[in-house]
Simulated scan of single mutants.
Amino acid sequence: MRKKIIAFFTGAMIVGALASGQASAAEVYKVQPGDSLWKISQKHGTSIQQLKSWNNLSSDLIFPNQKLHISADAAVNKEKNIDDVYTVKSGDSLWKISQKFGIQVHELKTWNKLSGDLIHPGQKLALKGEAAPVQTKTANTAPQQQPAPVQKETAAPEQVQESAPKQDQEPVENETSARSDGNEMTVTATAYTASCNGCSGVTATGIDLRKNPGQKVIAVDPSVIPLGSKVEVEGYGTAIAGDTGGAIKGHKIDLFIPSQSEAMDFGVKQVKIKVLN
């Protein structure tokens, strides 16, 4: 009789643990193409404001594959379990890190006092607002100094710190290599519309352009201009970097214009832009 009672409680504990794991997984939602905070709030019986609060979102902008907490309990568990500090790996960018941990690029830059998008392998980044930024340690440098990228064309051999690891001397990605005056650059601009045959009208970040024809959106190469950034475009105004395109590589952008005829008349132009955040 005693063995049966022990077996019963053991089975109950296992079932309870499985149910708890399933409930935890159900409280996290992976954003799908075409999703918006409004659609997700309706699907899960909550509100846009609660979703923004639970996930520390400062705007309505979300991205495909981003993980969102859809309950207060999940948000609390996130605060308890998320690592405070992340070590940058080769191939990382601020955009990739923000998607991995469900936070925003501008939050990472604010928490870590970054003035640009350049990061280095081995660098430690704070993943919470209350976590103090951790500076990458390199030999013979002050604690708050970051190693400067080595320009192979002009750098003399004695300028390279031999004691620092080679990977810490090269930037992960060259997002800012062609910029001048901070975040200003000249790019090749074309135009597109959401009313063409076969077009869904929904951007890579979930903005429905047919329902929001007045929204200023540009398609970008995320390795040059991070998705979600606000960008001042000469002759177009302030836009959101909210879309991508197969032909949009490097220093090229595509402007959303509601009218198909105006988009076709736009042609190809060289314009100056400034990334605001």
Rank of each mutant, 00 (worst) to 15 (best):
42 Q>L: 13
46 T>R: 08
95 W>S: 07
12 A>M: 15
110 T>Q: 09
56 N>H: 12
112 N>T: 02
32 Q>W: 01
76 V>P: 02
26 A>G: 14
50 Q>Y: 06
105 V>F: 08
54 W>S: 14
86 Y>Q: 10
72 A>T: 12
45 G>D: 00
85 V>D: 06
47 S>A: 13
38 W>C: 03
107 E>F: 03
54 W>M: 04
69 H>R: 14
45 G>H: 09
26 A>S: 15
45 G>F: 05
109 K>H: 09
41 S>R: 14
25 A>S: 05
112 N>Y: 02
88 V>L: 09
109 K>E: 05
44 H>G: 02
84 D>I: 12
52 K>V: 13
37 L>S: 01
105 V>N: 12
101 F>P: 05
14 I>T: 06
43 K>C: 03
57 L>H: 06
118 L>E: 01
92 D>P: 15
96 K>G: 06
107 E>W: 04
61 L>E: 11
87 T>F: 09
17 A>E: 13
34 G>N: 03
120 H>A: 01
97 I>T: 10
99 Q>R: 15
89 K>S: 12
77 N>Q: 13
14 I>E: 01
66 Q>W: 08
46 T>H: 11
116 G>D: 14
70 I>M: 02
14 I>W: 09
61 L>Y: 07
114 L>E: 08
106 H>W: 03
42 Q>C: 12
25 A>Q: 10
34 G>W: 03
96 K>A: 05
118 L>A: 01
39 K>N: 08
110 T>F: 00
58 S>F: 15
75 A>E: 12
70 I>H: 04
18 L>A: 09
88 V>M: 07
77 N>W: 07
104 Q>M: 10
27 E>Q: 06
110 T>S: 05
29 Y>V: 05
79 E>G: 10
65 N>P: 01
85 V>H: 09
46 T>Y: 10
92 D>T: 14
100 K>P: 00
27 E>A: 08
109 K>N: 04
90 S>N: 11
33 P>I: 15
85 V>E: 11
18 L>G: 11
70 I>C: 03
63 F>K: 02
86 Y>D: 06
34 G>M: 01
101 F>C: 13
61 L>T: 04
109 K>R: 10
28 V>E: 03
59 S>W: 00
92 D>K: 14
98 S>V: 04
117 D>N: 02
78 K>D: 10
77 N>F: 11
76 V>R: 14
64 P>G: 06
120 H>R: 15
31 V>S: 08
102 G>T: 02
18 L>Y: 11
12 A>K: 14
97 I>S: 13
117 D>C: 00
22 Q>Y: 03
117 D>E: 07
66 Q>L: 11
62 I>E: 01
81 N>R: 12
23 A>M: 15
88 V>G: 03
25 A>D: 12
53 S>F: 04
45 G>S: 03
69 H>C: 04
87 T>V: 11
71 S>F: 05
52 K>T: 15
55 N>I: 10
34 G>L: 00
108 L>W: 11
22 Q>A: 12
101 F>S: 06
95 W>C: 09
91 G>A: 09
116 G>T: 12
73 D>C: 03
